[in-house]
């Protein structure tokens, strides 16, 4: 499991746009580099990412090796109801990781 930092404002007012920022500890090995023996180092990147808010899609992304190691993503969602923000990503090994953040929305 990759270590992650997720930064979301936890208490929101309805209709407010809020930023979701996350940083995932992952090597994002591009598959372009060679080791000291000249062998290509196998590609290992997070290739799919998605974020939902109360099961509604905020965004989904396809990532390529051009995304830096320890990928950082920032995007915006609009506050509707108290609930959870779920972020899921998949890497080249097929490992799926899910992180969840609860937010409280007041009228």
């Amino acid at each position: 499991m990759a270590r992650t930092l997720i930064n979301v404002k936890k208490t929101l007012t309805r209709g407010e746009a809020f930023e979701i920022r996350l940083l995932i500890a992952h090597p994002m090995e591009s598959g372009q580099r060679r080791d000291s023996n000249g062998q290509v180092i196998a590609r290992d990147i997070i290739n799919r990412f998605s974020c939902t808010y109360n099961d509604m899609l905020v965004l989904e992304a396809t990532l390529f090796p051009a995304i830096s190691a320890n990928p950082y993503l920032s995007f915006w969602a609009v506050a509707t109801e108290t609930g959870s923000i779920v972020m899921t990503w998949t890497d080249d090994h097929g490992t799926v990781q899910t992180e969840r953040v609860e937010v409280t929305v007041s009228a």
Partner: peptide, 26 residues
């Protein structure tokens, strides 16, 4: 770049602003 594609993003109904930030390799 060795591979021309960098990122594809699709926004859903819960997205607030068409805005993203990330870090890339060149």
């Amino acid at each position: 770049n060795p591979l021309p594609e960098v990122l594809h993003v699709r926004f859903g109904p819960a997205a607030a602003r068409p805005r993203i930030a990330t870090r890339i390799r060149l």
